[in-house]
Design a binder for these strands. Structure first.
Length: 573
DNA sequence: ACTGATGCGTC
DNA sequence: GTCGGAC
DNA sequence: GTCCGACGACGCATCAGT
């Protein structure tokens, strides 16, 4: 085998990734990565970067392996000739990770090891194998292909192959930013320039290819190529005093959308840059007949009926439907509300200050008759509070505060845009079940099922019934305290789940109460999280289901104001 | 042809 | 979407 | 000041099992 081949193969890549995972400190990680990448040819480099930053498929390919943790876990159990439910799941609970479990089982089971013949596949071949999995429909066939792949890979490489198949990251504390830094180092280019190019290409592989062939200037903002959205931070993360440097808009509870248009061609992109044009044909049609100049708009899709913005749950009925029927279209009619312009005529406008972009979008809205958000000048906290109340009355989530002179920082969550929200409420609940977490939360209980009281409720036999699950909102220290307390009240175990004697009271905060007939309580919480562990309270203090129902009714009775005397958005006639 | 589990993407 | 914590 | 992983509910599409 030639020297080149050894560097190029997937085993070597997996070893490098493992050593990055084990190394502390991002500079050291970048150094390791740069040393490895520097040995690769341009085409290998692109793949190596893609695998590290994006997975088996490039972000812009739109491809998916469509194979989830259960299918993979069962294939692994089958390959190792162990029981999935009893052995595999238990190992996963102990290690906190499916892929870690796979590596250890493959290493330690003699029979499995004997099936293993290293094939030393190169990086390109790994792409072909992933492609084959993506093209296979039936889960059984996927599992068969997967086990065949494992038999040709080391346990370590098998672990990382599985991680490549998932949409998320490799979880080695080394994300796209670090890969870009390594590339910047090797090719001696400015990191900011590289980041900018990366945003425009939307793909690490493509960026790596451009930088390695010294053609970064080819990365350009192109119509019908989406770019990452600018994101907002919660206002609590910044103490605002200079109110007048911001403008306010209502924060719509809809779906973020980037609209690209030129003449009769229109394309819609979601927050993750997926094409969603098929889901919203009426939007595509209505913009197609406007004969717009080349333009990219940022905005929100909402269900809008009888002059009232409808709840997010209505929109959910449209989001996943790729071929909506006429009946669905008329039951849940949508609007696109524009609030920013990122490209106009021949050039990107992202570097312009917001005020200037606003002038452009107002002009466009007037000429081509499409809705844009209402914008308000603000000068005091009091005024912001008034606008906030008005936003809620319109059925919106709250406000967005946007810095007037800020550019559109695509792909970043900066303090230039702030979201103003208020938790809808909180209830006192009791922990009923605890489950082990995964990754850095592996091995300890970190995932809790919380219940409300139905003690005096004729409809139920039980004392408490689940209202939701929560993980977030407590600190590492509280997490330790919780685990200590839980040990004392376990009354039953079902695999990784422990049933607890109801003792620990948690104040649970949420964004909304949603009716859901499929659950025992008939209600669930939107965005539930710990507000406080109430060591001072006892189970008898836990709120009742009736209380939850009352909160829901209270909220439900508040009418959503029609867009008449005041407006969340403006639609020129 | 129907039902329930699983996967995926939205917030 | 949410959060706490790492960097 | 930003980024990142580890998590929530929901609805639709797709597939496995009957």
């Amino acid at each position: 085998m030639s020297k080149q081949k050894a560097v190029d193969n997937f085993e070597r890549w997996a070893q490098l990734v493992q050593s990055i995972a084990e190394t502390r400190g991002s500079n050291a990680k970048i150094e390791l990565c740069a040393n490895y990448l520097a040995q690769l040819s341009p085409s290998q480099l692109a793949l190596a970067c893609q695998y590290m930053g994006e997975g088996a498929f490039s972000n812009i390919s739109g491809k998916r392996a469509s194979i989830g943790s259960r299918t993979i876990g069962m294939a692994a159990a089958d390959y190792c000739k162990i029981d999935y439910d009893i052995v595999f799941k238990a190992c996963r609970t102990a290690t906190g990770s499916s892929t870690e479990t796979i590596q250890r089982l493959f290493e330690n089971l003699t029979e499995t090891r004997q099936k293993n013949i290293l094939r030393h596949w190169d990086l390109a071949h790994i792409s072909e194998l992933a492609e084959k999995l993506a093209q296979t429909r039936a889960r059984k066939d996927k599992q068969r292909i997967l086990t065949r792949i494992w038999s040709g890979l080391s346990p370590l490489a098998s672990k990382y192959f599985v991680r490549l198949l998932s949409q998320g990251s490799l979880r080695i504390g080394f994300e796209s930013r670090s890969i870009l830094q390594a590339l910047a180092k090797i090719y001696e280019v400015d990191y900011e320039q590289l980041r900018y190019a990366h945003m425009l290409t939307g793909s690490i592989a493509k960026t790596a290819e451009l930088v390695s062939t010294h053609s970064l200037d080819q990365a350009q903002f192109k119509l019908f190529n989406p770019i990452a959205f600018m994101l907002a931070a919660p206002i609590q993360s910044r103490s605002v005093k200079d109110w007048d440097t911001f403008i306010a808009e209502e924060k719509f509870d809809g779906m973020r959308c980037q609209l690209h248009a030129y003449g009769s061609k229109v394309e819609l992109f979601s927050r993750d840059l997926n094409v969603v044009s098929n889901q919203f044909p009426e939007l595509v049609d209505s913009f197609a007949i406007k004969d717009l100049p080349p333009v990219v708009l940022d905005g929100e899709i909402c269900v809008f009926r009888e002059s009232i913005i409808q709840p997010f749950q209505d929109l959910q009925k449209r989001m996943g439907v790729k071929k909506p029927t006429q009946a669905l279209l008329s039951k849940y009619p949508v609007v696109f509300i524009g609030y920013d312009v990122l490209f106009l005529e021949r050039e990107s406008t992202v570097k312009q200050p917001l005020t200037q972009r606003r002038i452009s979008i107002e002009k466009l809205s007037k000429t081509y008759k499409f809705p844009i958000s209402s914008q308000h000048a603000v000068s005091s906290k009091k005024q912001v509070e008034q606008l906030f109340e008005q936003a809620l009355a319109h059925g919106n989530e709250g406000l967005m505060l946007k810095q007037k002179n800020a550019p559109y920082s695509f792909g970043e969550r900066k303090n230039h845009w702030l979201k103003v929200k208020q938790p809808s409420g909180s209830i006192d609940t009791v922990i009923l079940y605890a489950q082990a977490g995964s990754g850095k939360r592996g091995g300890s209980y970190s995932d809790f099922t919380l219940g409300v009281s139905v003690k005096n409720d004729a409809r139920y036999e039980e004392e408490f019934i689940p209202i939701g699950k929560a993980y977030g909102g407590y600190t590492d220290q509280e997490w330790k305290q919780l685990n200590k307390a839980i040990k004392g009240c376990i009354i039953n175990r079902f695999g990784p789940t422990a049933q607890l004697h109801p003792e620990i009271v948690v104040e649970l905060e949420f964004e909304a109460i949603q009716p859901n007939p499929r659950t025992k309580a008939k209600y669930t919480l939107r965005f539930p999280r710990f507000k406080a562990i109430r060591w001072d309270l006892s189970p008898s203090d836990v709120d009742s289901l009736e209380h939850v129902e009352m909160l829901f009714e209270e909220h439900q009775s508040k009418k959503r104001n029609p867009q008449k005397s005041s407006h969340s958005f403006l639609k020129p006639e």
